[in-house]
Amino acid sequence: MTHISSMLDTYPKDLGGIDTEKLAECIAACFECTQTCTACADACLGEDMVADLTKCIRTNLDCSDICAATGNVLSRRTGYDANITKAILQACAAACASCADECGQHADMHEHCAVCAEACRRCEQACNQLLATLG
């Protein structure tokens, strides 16, 4: 997260009073969740009972895409639009909650799903904490 914070600190204009610590935490959580969800989907594809994991794979990939988009949007501060930021944070929190729930159903059988559910819950929490600061 050092580079994320460093980039926010070097921004040439005022960031508009946003909590930069929570912003940095959320950006990091989004990109970590993106990687974890992609890896979990790939691990699901390697399981013997892959057909039983179709919904999990789909949810992983949807969550990964939404987290990546959220991390990218949060990283761009020029021309900031609070409505877009709030909407994408809400979508990301919802996607992470769904993915965590789905992976949680497989966590006892598949360790990768347990790890993914944890990353999704962390990202959901980070999104909700940042949202709370936006009012």
Rank of each mutant, 00 (worst) to 15 (best):
M1V: 02
M1Y: 01
H3L: 14
I4G: 08
S5L: 07
M7K: 12
M7H: 13
D9A: 15
L15G: 09
I18M: 02
T20I: 13
T20F: 00
K22A: 15
L23H: 02
I27R: 04
E32S: 12
T36W: 01
C37G: 03
A39R: 04
D42I: 13
L45M: 10
L45D: 03
L45R: 05
L45S: 04
E47P: 00
M49Q: 05
V50M: 13
V50N: 10
A51I: 11
D52N: 14
D52W: 03
L53D: 01
L53I: 05
T54N: 05
K55C: 05
I57F: 05
I57K: 05
T59P: 01
T59H: 00
N60H: 09
D62R: 03
C67T: 11
T70C: 15
V73H: 15
V73D: 15
V73I: 15
V73R: 15
L74A: 07
T78F: 05
Y80E: 13
T85R: 01
T85I: 10
I88M: 14
L89R: 05
C92G: 02
C99E: 03
D101N: 03
E102D: 10
Q105R: 14
H106M: 10
H110V: 12
H110C: 13
E111M: 14
C113H: 02
A114V: 13
A114R: 15
V115R: 02
A117W: 01
A119F: 09
A119M: 14
R121C: 01
R121P: 01
C127P: 02
C127K: 04
L134V: 07
G135M: 09
